[in-house]
Design a protein around this nucleic acid. Sequence first.
DNA 1: CCCTGATTCGC
DNA 2: GCGAATCAGG
Length: 186
Amino acid sequence: MNEAGAWTEERVELLKKLWSDGLSASQIAGELGSVTRNAVIGKVHRLGLSGRAKNPAAPSTPRNNAPRKAPTRSPSHPMTGNQGATAGMTRGANALAPQYAPEEEPETQQAPTPSEDVVVPFSERVTIMDLREYMCRWPMGDPTTPEFRFCGGRSQTGMPYCSHHAQIAYQPAADRRRDRSRVARG
DNA sequence: CCCTGATTCGC
DNA sequence: GCGAATCAGG
């Protein structure tokens, strides 16, 4: 039978399906299992699927010269002693769970109750003291109260907010009619 | 700090 | 052909 780790027809087809579906490499890797995101990307490139739905004449990352500078990898000492890093590479493909978000939109719940805490767990809420550059700076509550907190979620570099709040704050007025229900006014 | 894909290169 | 390592951008 097909062994895990081998790219069988089914795996390749599923890979193409998920890739064309817009799923990220890590998600596909998590769904396939036994493979890492790198493996998925590698296979994708090998198949010639790279680029997904991007403009063929619009390379986001035009590596003009990038001489790859000799990485000079040392295969002699892949792991000297102990990696001492995370106890288990819980990163990348393994970090993402093979779960899907159907994103249900309860229209019956149009309550204007701006309770962001419903989407942001308390554990992530931080004060300005614990705020980091990579943390979401979405304001919560009144800044005049001592209970004022920030989202504290994971934000991208350069982004003041996390992915969730970034979409809320950066909603184009044209598409704003969608309304996220509990989005509310900050 | 997190994530993404792209590429190289040893196996 | 495969995939880890690395790079580069967000």
